[in-house]
Design a protein around this nucleic acid. Structure first.
Length: 283
DNA sequence: CATAGTCCCTGGTAGC
DNA sequence: TGCTACCAGGGACTAT
């Protein structure tokens, strides 16, 4: 799935196709993804104007003229494709209907938005716009890593006393919202911190050092249009290219790219997921 | 509360 | 165009 940079890339690609436009017709091809869709979702979306397309963590948030907000998660394998016309320009032909095209929006200005999600871990819900922040999926999320609330004193305080490995702590969306397996591995590699170290046992200055590193790696990934491994694509169908900049993720057995390091990237499993790191320079 | 493990689902790939 | 095992970007739920 898309982690924060991928969702932000999708948001940027989608916004010009939908903001200010009306959902002329919403088609919902099945009753659920991870959870049942809200009652009468297609009817509630059809005719609504999209005021703004925002993002919180890995969630897209489409504020509608009806006073509701569409809360949209792409899960692990969710893809969003824009076809037809965007801002008066032809993007490309509508794709042939494909397996796992679960929700399709035909916009008034001629864009078509297709949400395809093979694994169906994605989700959509509708909530009153003035209560988005208390939606059950969003209420417990920690600060945005690129926002002002995520700073060195916050992270140090938040991890104090925690016995869980730093890898798991950074994946915990209550600590910081939007990091996933790839960018946690990349941030820890850049910071020179072992993913196995207990979060609360890392010297405060080193924890503090994670803050700018996390910001930097996310910013670079957004700049690159995200990382394309299997499913992820930008909204225009193009691949992101940050995967070519990975220093640790997916590089088991390859030489560590850190300056002066002669180590080899290793793969271990932590809480059931792969962690890639350099045992030599990440301590 | 914090933590670790399981499960949801499909599809791609490696190995036989 | 065989079969099987394993792996995958998330995260809620359960048990301890």
């Amino acid at each position: 799935m898309p982690e924060l940079p991928e969702v932000e890339t999708v948001r940027r690609g989608l916004a010009p196709a939908v903001e200010g436009d009306v959902i002329a017709r919403a088609r919902v091809n099945r009753p659920d993804l991870r959870w049942p869709f809200p009652d009468r979702m297609a009817e509630r979306l059809t005719g609504a104007r999209v005021i703004r397309l925002g993002r919180r963590s890995k969630y897209l948030l489409a504020d509608l003229s009806t006073g509701e907000t569409l809360v949209w998660h792409l899960g692990m394998s969710g893809r969003v494709l824009v076809s037809g016309r965007m801002l008066g320009d032809y993007v490309h032909d509508h794709p042939a209907p494909a397996k796992h095209d679960h929700v399709v929006f035909d916009m008034g200005r001629g864009a078509r938005i297709t949400f395809n999600d093979a694994r169906r871990f994605g989700a959509m819900d509708l909530v009153a716009t003035d209560r988005v922040e208390s939606h059950w999926l969003l209420a417990g999320l920690g600060p945005e890593p690129l926002g002002n609330a995520f700073d060195e004193p916050y992270l140090v305080a938040r991890l104090r006393g925690r016995m869980t490995p730093i890898k798991a702590a950074l994946l915990d969306q209550r600590v910081v919202a939007g990091l996933g397996n790839i960018y946690v591995c990349e941030a820890l590699h850049r910071a020179g911190i072992s993913p196995r170290r207990k979060a609360g046992r890392i010297a405060a200055p080193r924890v503090a050092g994670l803050v700018p590193v996390i910001r930097q790696v996310l910013a670079e990934a957004i700049e690159a249009g995200g990382s394309s491994l299997r499913d992820y694509r930008q909204a225009d169908g193009e691949l992101g290219y940050f995967q070519h900049a990975f220093r640790a993720y997916g590089r088991e057995g390859a030489p560590c790219p850190a300056d002066g390091c002669t180590g080899t990237i290793a793969r271990i499993v932590q809480s059931g997921r792969s962690t890639f790191y350099c045992p030599q320079c990440q301590r």
